[in-house]
């Protein structure tokens, strides 16, 4: 086939199982069990159980094993950041995505074309994972979770300072922070430690395992104590981290006059915070905000953008305004980590 006739959508396209790379005969982040899967990161809407062969970073595989045990896939293959392998007619490389520990962008090359599947990513500094690395490409596949110009995440250190300030002002109240179990919890703890908060942090049982796993990978988290086993009095004036589902629940109500906080990019929208009964919204996100998304288009220089889950229309409109080709890539089963079981 002459090169001019090869279109990217002819070798990377959506099937019932998810995004499929035909010349390599594997799926990227399939939402159903497949014979060969490349998994970008450990969140449940990307890493599903039951695949036959799984290719991912060592950290992502460890996360999958910790969550799915013997259902994490029959055969595992580790691919370190920067390492290159050939699968069928495709050269595959993983580079850091800056989203959570082990998160990667998949760089796929076939007959001189390069497509980057960025998975989920962010551009902000994060003490718990390697920073996003822009890779020049022909097609850049991007998420659009915060694909509207109302989403501009503030400096996370400022948000953490807000929380610590409230702790000082209300020492009689327990501060409960809603965090996703994978990534946000550990980043939050690391940010708090960096801000000089060295008291024990109490964590909900659902966060325990993943915090251990981060520690085993060299992320410093300081002293953590199980919240469920601790006495109400002991946690007065302390910080408690729990999954979002628990913060507005009976679980949190047994604490001393809890201040309900939540760390998420969604907290940018006041009504979202009110709907969840959040008194102190902390805008800290592991996803790219509007400026990070649009800056990435410029950084990778791709003439073509495919947009997955989120507010894709706005991002497509923006890309087209910039003279890029852009279209939606409908992947089902993607949402934010809020949906995932904890």
């Amino acid at each position: 086939m002459p090169r001019s006739e090869l279109l990217p959508e002819n070798w990377l396209y959506v099937t019932d199982q998810g995004l499929y790379c035909a010349p390599g005969d594997f799926h990227v982040d399939p939402h159903r069990a497949v014979p060969r899967a490349l998994v970008t990161h450990g969140h449940a809407d990307h890493a599903r159980p039951g695949h036959d062969k799984v290719l991912a970073t060592a950290e992502t595989l460890a996360i999958m094993r910790s969550r799915y045990k013997d259902k994490a896939g029959r055969e595992w293959q580790v691919l370190a950041y920067g390492e290159v392998i050939q699968i069928g007619e495709v050269r595959v490389r993983l580079v850091p995505a800056g989203h959570v520990l082990g998160s990667a962008q998949a760089v796929l090359e076939h007959r001189g074309q390069r497509i980057v599947v960025s998975g989920d990513y962010k551009r902000r500094e994060d003490p718990t994972c390697a920073p996003f690395e822009p890779v020049p490409c022909d097609v850049f596949i991007t998420e659009a979770t915060f694909g509207l110009p109302v989403f501009r995440h503030p400096d996370p250190d400022r948000e953490v300072a807000k929380l610590l300030n409230s702790l000082r002002l209300f020492p009689e109240r327990t501060h409960v922070v809603g965090v996703y179990a994978l990534g946000k919890a550990q980043r939050m703890i690391a940010l708090l430690r960096r801000a000089g908060y060295d008291a024990p942090i109490y964590i909900h049982g659902a966060l325990q395992q993943l915090c251990e796993l981060y520690r085993a990978h060299g992320v410093e988290l300081g002293e953590l104590r199980p919240a469920t086993a601790s006495q109400k009095e002991e946690m007065t004036g302390a910080l408690v981290l729990a999954p979002p589902s628990a913060i507005a629940d009976r679980w949190a109500r047994r604490l001393s006059e809890p201040v309900i906080a939540m760390a998420s990019g969604w907290m940018q929208v006041r009504q979202r915070a009110r709907q969840r009964g959040v008194e102190m919204p902390l805008v800290i996100s592991d996803h790219a905000d509007w400026d990070e998304l649009t800056r990435s288009f410029a950084d990778v220089g791709a003439p073509e953008i495919w947009v997955t889950h989120g507010n894709e229309e706005a991002l497509i409109h923006y890309a087209q305004q910039q003279g890029l080709r852009a279209r939606a890539l409908s992947l089902i089963g993607r949402g934010d980590e809020e949906q995932e079981a904890v």
């Binding site: 509207l148 110009p149 109302v150 507010n311 229309e313 409109h317 923006y318």
Partner: peptide
Amino acid sequence: RHDPVLFRWSHDYVGDLAETVSLI
């Protein structure tokens, strides 16, 4: 001051004019 298409989508999403303008 801003792309009207993006503004309308944003307003539709946020559901409150004052908040949309303040954010965008």
